[in-house]
Nucleic acid binder design. Structure first.
Length: 208
DNA sequence: TGCCAGGCCCTCTTTAGGGCCTT
């Protein structure tokens, strides 16, 4: 998939991991992703991956991914090569992207790859565009915005599916405020804009 | 043994502290 600046054409992805920090030795155990083109889901990617170390009882309980399941999975390096082919140079979206970015870069570094496209964060965008939500956890936003969900949480593809629905809803909320669709670059810029400048930016994005 | 991240964002701020998010 090649890069485009259409905000509705990108790859929304999510990692499940052994913990919070690859710098502390944590590894990925599952990746899920949804490719959308023009706002329509056209392809999906999901794979468990064997990190080579046992996961804690907490993570088994939190994700439902057991050590027995991971024993039968392909190594991280093999799965990440397949994901890299799936993602290509596409722009990427994740919920709390600073977290997924660290794991993506760490796993890619092990196979001498780097992310191809830009990365936007649905959590930062939602904080700006849904300020009245009770909080900005993915599950809360799904409920608050009445987004589709099969009730599965903390599995990579299910979370990526919900994040893709959230991303498209955020773009719709912006579209309601102006005559033009925003670009992916606009959304990256929005994520970097503070509260004081937000209304001015949204006005610029929607009416430029 | 004990502890463990990091970026964003608000405020009783900026010479800082703490909650929110992700697993």
């Amino acid at each position: 998939m090649t890069a485009t600046d259409d905000a509705r054409t990108c790859i929304i992805f999510d990692f499940e991991t052994t913990g919070l920090s690859p710098a502390q030795g944590d590894r990925s155990i599952e990746i899920g992703a949804v490719r959308i083109e023009g706002g329509v889901p056209v392809a999906r990617f999901q794979s468990l991956m064997d990190p080579g170390v046992p996961v804690s009882p907490f993570i088994e309980e939190y994700t439902g991914i057991s050590n027995a399941m991971l024993d039968e999975a392909e190594p991280c390096e093999v799965v990440m090569e397949r994901f890299a082919l799936f993602a290509g140079e596409a722009n990427l979206v994740a919920h709390n992207a600073s977290f997924d970015r660290r794991f993506l870069e760490a796993e890619y570094a092990r196979i001498d790859r780097q992310p191809g496209g830009s990365l936007a964060c649905s959590l930062l965008a939602a904080r700006r565009l849904c300020p009245t939500a009770p909080n900005h956890r993915l599950g809360t936003l799904v409920e608050h915005l009445d987004l589709p969900s099969d009730g599965t949480f903390h599995r990579a593809l299910a979370d990526a599916e919900m994040t893709s629905a959230l991303w498209l809803r955020l773009l719709d909320l912006l579209a309601e405020r102006g005559p033009r669709d925003v670009t992916f670059s606009d959304m990256v810029r929005l994520c970097q804009t503070n509260k004081a400048d937000l209304n001015k930016l949204v006005d610029q994005l929607c009416h430029a």
